[in-house]
């Protein structure tokens, strides 16, 4: 599937370029824009971006590969990021991640067969006082139990399908 940068996104990138002293500063907002539309950032997207921005592919790739919040592989409609850093791990974060994987029969980092869910473990998301927690797409869900987490995901799934 070839990647096509829509005109509105292209204009967004061109506008971002004007905002900063250095072109390099516009890389992160541009990557986020693509991720928001596509769910992930493909190598083709980097090539297209490189052309639009007039920056070398390798330099954009350096930024893309450095930050974990950019998805370098396709993700499901619900991207579930379960924190497994100290506080969450002590309160069952790892087990929670395992449970969700089991429930939706998906390996960590992969997309479930229905294309709905991707589970990844992440480091601290800064909500230690509400451990364990997870982030689904842009939203935090805190003070979870295994049951409540599954319930939340089921509800979200319904919303996406419905």
């Amino acid at each position: 599937m070839a990647f096509i940068l829509k005109d509105e996104d292209k204009n967004f990138v061109l506008e971002e370029l004007k905002r900063y002293e250095s072109k390099y500063s516009a890389i992160i907002p541009s990557l986020f824009r693509i991720q928001k539309k596509e769910g992930w950032i493909s190598a083709e997207a980097v090539s297209v971006l490189s052309e639009v921005m007039g920056l070398p592919e390798a330099h954009i790739n350096e930024v893309l590969q450095f930050y974990t919040m950019f998805n370098k592989e396709p993700v499901g409609k619900l991207h579930v990021q379960v924190c497994t850093n100290v506080s969450c791990a002590m309160n069952g974060g790892r087990e929670l991640a395992k449970k969700i994987c089991q429930k939706y029969q998906v390996k960590e980092g992969a997309v479930s067969q229905d294309g709905m869910i991707t589970v990844t473990r992440v480091e601290c998301l800064g909500a230690c006082d509400k451990a364990p927690m997870m982030q689904v797409n842009d939203k935090y869900w805190e003070d979870l139990t295994q049951e409540s987490a599954i319930q939340i995901l089921e509800d979200l799934k319904q919303k996406v399908v419905g």
Partner: peptide, 9 residues
């Protein structure tokens, strides 16, 4: 020519 970079972290 900017081909090389340091990727990941």
């Amino acid at each position: 020519t900017h081909e090389l970079g340091i990727f990941n972290r």
